[in-house]
Design a protein around this nucleic acid. Sequence first.
DNA 1: AAACAGATGTACT
DNA 2: GTACATCTGTTTA
Length: 174
Amino acid sequence: MCVVARELIGATLLVSGAGGIIVEAEAYHHTDPAAHSYSGQTPRNAVMFGPPGYLYVYRSYGIHWCMNFVCEKEGSASAVLIRAIEPTHGLSKMRRRRGVKDERLLCSGPGKLCQALAVTHAHNGLPLDKSPFKLFARGAKPGILVGPRIGITKAAEKPWRFGMKGSRFLSRPF
DNA sequence: AAACAGATGTACT
DNA sequence: GTACATCTGTTTA
């Protein structure tokens, strides 16, 4: 799924017309102690154990929502966490939902991004190629940055965070 | 600039 | 009860 995470950088994601270019993502796998799927299936993470191409949404710290793309083959329980987006579509809608003006603060983090795109548990388990979602492949291959993941305590050293080189919309620099 | 507290659902000990 | 794939506002240096 590290390959998927890399491929996603530069792709465009829209939810009901709001969104932009994915500039940051992290990979998780069931053999990875930091992954939600590490210690087996639960009601929350069930989507991760299903087929690829679906959205896994979970609540973080009781407050925020975070979105993942389920990837690789069914049963591998691997997913890619979308961490940051460069806003290109539906700016006014996203500003209203986030309550901030600065474009750089709209989607520069997994929780912020879901608030801006109005992604909630209602989207958990939905296919990414249907209704509110639009996913466009990237054009030219962007420069890819690689580094350790953010905000985790287990297996934090694994270099499974990917970002677009030179982007001003990352959640944090590499 | 860095540290911290607060908000609080879900899973695990 | 404790930890957590977070963010924000406030306090401290």
